[in-house]
Simulated assay, not measured.
Amino acid sequence: MSGNGKHYHHGRTPAAWTGSMVSGVGFLLGTVAFLIGPNWVLVWISIAIILGGAVVGGIMSKMGMGQA
């Protein structure tokens, strides 16, 4: 607890975990895309998934599942 009564989760919220996991899948897919080819279609799909992870985490945070 800090002095002002707020509790800081340091990223241990459902929004942070979900955004990180979705982005992690995107990075893993991007790695596979480079190892098998490079397969540029799969690379761009992985980039979209990584950005989607940020969007999902932001939406969940605004829904109250993140740090205030």
Score class of each variant (00 low, 15 high):
M1P: 01
S2N: 15
S2R: 14
G3V: 08
G3F: 02
N4R: 04
N4P: 00
N4I: 02
G5A: 00
G5C: 00
G5N: 02
G5M: 01
H7F: 08
H7M: 08
H7Y: 09
H7N: 13
Y8F: 14
Y8T: 06
Y8N: 07
Y8M: 09
Y8W: 08
H9C: 07
H10S: 04
H10Y: 06
G11E: 06
G11Y: 10
G11I: 11
G11T: 07
R12Y: 08
R12F: 06
R12T: 05
R12E: 09
T13F: 05
T13R: 06
T13G: 07
T13S: 09
P14Q: 06
P14L: 13
P14N: 07
A15Q: 07
A16I: 11
A16M: 12
A16K: 11
A16F: 12
A16C: 11
W17M: 08
W17G: 05
W17S: 05
T18F: 06
T18I: 03
T18A: 06
G19V: 03
G19D: 01
G19P: 00
G19Q: 03
G19Y: 03
S20W: 12
S20N: 14
S20I: 06
M21Y: 15
M21Q: 15
V22Q: 12
V22T: 12
V22L: 13
S23R: 14
S23P: 06
G26S: 07
F27Y: 14
F27H: 08
L28V: 09
L28A: 12
L28F: 11
L29M: 13
L29C: 08
L29F: 11
L29P: 00
G30V: 02
V32Q: 05
A33M: 00
A33F: 02
A33W: 00
F34H: 03
F34G: 13
F34Y: 10
I36Q: 07
G37L: 04
G37S: 07
N39R: 09
N39A: 13
W40S: 14
W40H: 14
V41T: 11
L42G: 10
L42P: 09
L42M: 13
V43E: 01
V43G: 07
V43L: 13
V43Y: 07
W44D: 14
I45F: 03
I45S: 03
I45Y: 02
S46N: 15
S46Y: 13
I47P: 05
I47Y: 02
I47W: 02
A48V: 15
I50K: 00
L51N: 10
L51M: 14
G52V: 03
G52D: 01
G52T: 08
G52C: 06
G52M: 04
G53R: 07
G53M: 03
A54T: 06
A54K: 03
A54R: 04
V55W: 10
V56H: 10
V56T: 15
G57F: 14
G57I: 11
I59Y: 14
M60F: 11
M60Y: 12
S61K: 12
S61E: 10
S61Y: 11
K62C: 04
K62I: 02
M63T: 10
G64D: 07
G64L: 13
G64R: 10
M65L: 15
M65V: 13
G66R: 07
G66T: 08
Q67K: 00
Q67V: 03
A68Y: 10
A68V: 04
A68H: 10
